[in-house]
């Protein structure tokens, strides 16, 4: 490989050659330094979280710098406390997990229902105002959540939807619809026209074609989009805080964890157990579908 560096143009390369070799070595080493650094900064916080969640609080206070947990210290009581219902003196995270799952799944269904027809129209059909609508869908992504928070807060207070999980799921549509449209649109355009034409020749109406031909073909993209929406909804905090803070039985896990930290004296290790409970579903989902998701999000990036 380095033979290529004895440049074809010959002589004046002597100095450059050594510089090239120096850089070759330097970056060869630097690359591994960077890789190790990245591995540490991404994995260490999560390992730390797991580690603290199985330690009793006294062990943490006694020796905060210790990176392992001894066999006699190891405990799962933190998880028991977090998961037990409030009536039994726990923190009731099971109930919150159910709330979070409900809101997130609701948001997935609602967002897909709202986004699919628009994504299809924008990707496939030429119609009056199509380009403007397409631009609007993307622009929505740039509207700040703070601008939305005030009117939605007021509107929901007015409609009595404050403290309702349905209301929260509706808000999450606003958060996820632009990227959903973008992801699905990018996939729809890769489905050849001829398939649709064949369906049309066989007597399918446009709606039937979409339902019976396009959607099954786009299943990977629908999955990726659904996962994206689920993750955003599961992780969301601001709107949950605004709408649900007053009603503890409706709290999502994110909100519950934050309230737990701010509330009465709860030990940090219990807090970490709660964090693990909150993180695990998303991380599992993500690893199950990593390929799907990263490709769905970045498709089109290599063309821009």
């Amino acid at each position: 490989m380095s033979a290529a560096h004895t440049s074809p143009r010959g002589r004046p390369a002597a100095r450059r050659f050594s510089r090239a070799r120096f850089e070759e070595r330097l970056f060869g080493v630097l690359r591994w330094v960077v890789i190790a650094f990245l591995a540490v900064i991404t994995l260490a916080p999560f390992s730390y979280m797991l580690l603290l969640s199985v330690k009793p609080i006294d062990a943490l206070l006694l020796d905060p710098g210790r990176l392992w947990v001894s066999a006699e210290d190891f405990t799962l009581s933190t998880y028991r406390e977090v998961l037990k219902p409030t009536s039994e003196g726990g923190q009731g995270f099971v109930h919150m997990l159910a709330n979070s799952a409900l809101v997130s799944l609701g948001a997935v269904v609602l967002t897909l229902l709202a986004a699919i027809p628009g994504a299809y129209a924008v990707s496939r059909l030429k119609f009056f105002g199509g380009r403007q609508v397409s631009a609007l869908f993307l622009a929505v992504y740039l509207f700040p959540a703070t601008l939305l928070a005030v009117p939605l807060f007021v509107m929901f207070a007015k409609m009595g939807l404050q403290g309702s999980l349905v209301g929260l799921a509706i808000v999450y549509i606003a958060q996820t619809v632009p990227v959903s449209i973008y992801m699905m649109k990018n996939y729809f355009v890769t489905i050849p026209y001829s398939i649709e034409e064949a369906a049309a020749l066989d007597g399918c109406s446009r709606l039937q074609t979409v339902r019976k031909v396009i959607l099954p073909l786009a299943a990977p993209s629908l999955m990726a989009t659904g996962l994206y929406v689920f993750m955003i909804a599961w992780n969301e905090f601001l709107f949950a805080l605004l709408f649900l803070a007053a009603q503890p039985d409706k709290w999502t896990v994110s909100l519950g964890l934050q309230q737990l930290a701010g509330g009465i004296e709860v030990s940090k290790t219990v807090l970490m157990a709660g964090s693990v409970v909150l993180t695990i579903p998303v991380v599992l989902l993500f690893f199950a579908a990593e390929r799907l998701l990263t490709e769905g999000l970045t498709s089109g990036a290599d063309k821009s």
Partner: peptide, 9 residues
């Protein structure tokens, strides 16, 4: 990962 969890870590 959820922002609440990582912020606490």
């Amino acid at each position: 990962a959820p922002v609440v969890a990582v912020a606490f870590v």
